[in-house]
Computed example of a mutant assay.
Amino acid sequence: MKNFTFNINENSYSVRILSQEDNTIELEVNGTNYLVKMKEEIKSRKTPTLVRKPSTTAPVEPIKVNPSSSKTTITAPIPGVVLSLKVQVGDTIKANDSLMILEAMKMENNIVSEKSGTVTAINVKPGQQVLQGEVMIEIE
């Protein structure tokens, strides 16, 4: 394969590489054959470390659309179909009262009120499909 000449301590060595398989090399030095097993280099793997800079901005407070308004809207948490309404316009309700049943992904979800008040508007009918975030009931 390849021929090399080495001079070590004023001695000359003629080296010829005959074959190589993985880390084993067969070579000839001044006419004598040798099988040499190369030392495997152990590579250290560097695991990357994720370093994040600390945030320099202050946390943002949520914007309240109309903080003085006493009106609350009940919106659809997920897309679905209104199965039944349990309240009517003018009904007085308390916090956590059941307002309606919404079917989504073949499951019936009980929609409850967030606060006490009076139902001022119902924007849906039984059997109607609603999208996520759609206003279904308004409470004052």
Rank of each mutant, 00 (worst) to 15 (best):
Met107Asn: 07
Ile17Gly: 03
Pro62His: 07
Asp97Tyr: 03
Gln20Asn: 08
Ser84Pro: 08
Val130Asn: 01
Lys46Glu: 12
Lys37Val: 09
Lys86Gly: 13
Ile101Lys: 03
Met105Gln: 03
Val119Pro: 00
Pro77Val: 02
Glu134Gln: 08
Ala76Pro: 00
Met100Tyr: 03
Lys37Arg: 10
Met1Gln: 07
Ala104Asp: 01
Ile17Cys: 03
Val130Gly: 01
Asn96Arg: 12
Ala104Glu: 01
Ile74Asn: 05
Ser68Tyr: 08
Gly133Asp: 02
Pro54Ala: 12
Gln129Met: 15
Ala104Tyr: 00
Ser116Ala: 15
Asn3Val: 09
Ile101Met: 02
Val135Asp: 14
Arg16Trp: 02
Ile122Glu: 02
Leu131Met: 15
Glu114Lys: 08
Ile78Ser: 12
Gln129Arg: 14
Val119His: 07
Ala121Leu: 11
Val119Asp: 02
Lys43Asp: 15
Asp97Arg: 04
Ser14Tyr: 11
Lys2Trp: 07
Thr92Asn: 13
Ala121Pro: 04
Ser12Cys: 13
Ile17Arg: 03
Gly80Phe: 01
Lys2Asn: 08
Ser55Pro: 07
Ile25Trp: 02
Glu138Tyr: 08
Ile139Phe: 05
Lys86Cys: 12
Lys2Ser: 06
Val15Lys: 00
Ser14His: 11
Glu138His: 06
Val60Met: 15
Val135Ser: 15
Gln129Ser: 15
Asn110Thr: 15
Ala104Gln: 00
Gln20Pro: 03
Lys43Gly: 09
Gly80Leu: 02
Glu41Leu: 11
Met136Ser: 00
Leu27Arg: 04
Ile122Asp: 02
Pro79Gln: 06
Glu41Phe: 13
Glu114Phe: 11
Ile101Glu: 01
Ser98Glu: 09
Asn110Tyr: 13
Thr5Pro: 04
Asn23Ile: 10
Ile74Trp: 02
Asn96His: 10
Pro67Asp: 04
Pro126Arg: 07
Val82Trp: 03
Asp97Gln: 12
Pro77His: 05
Glu41Met: 13
Ser113Glu: 04
Met100Asp: 01
Glu10Gly: 10
Ser44Trp: 13
Thr56Ile: 10
Ala76Thr: 03
Glu28Cys: 02
Ala58Asn: 11
Asn23Glu: 09
Asn23Val: 10
Pro126Asp: 04
Val89Asp: 08
Ile25Glu: 07
Pro59His: 05
Asn33His: 12
Gly117His: 11
Ile8Asn: 02
Lys86Leu: 14
Ile78Cys: 13
Lys94Thr: 10
Val29Trp: 00
Ser55Ala: 14
Val112Ile: 10
Leu18Arg: 06
Gln132Ser: 14
Val60Phe: 14
Ser14Asp: 09
Pro48Arg: 11
Ala121His: 06
Ile137Gly: 05
Val135Ala: 14
Asn33Ser: 15
Asp97Gly: 01
Asn30Trp: 00
Lys106Glu: 04
Gly80Val: 00
Lys94Gln: 13
Gly133Cys: 08
Asn109Glu: 03
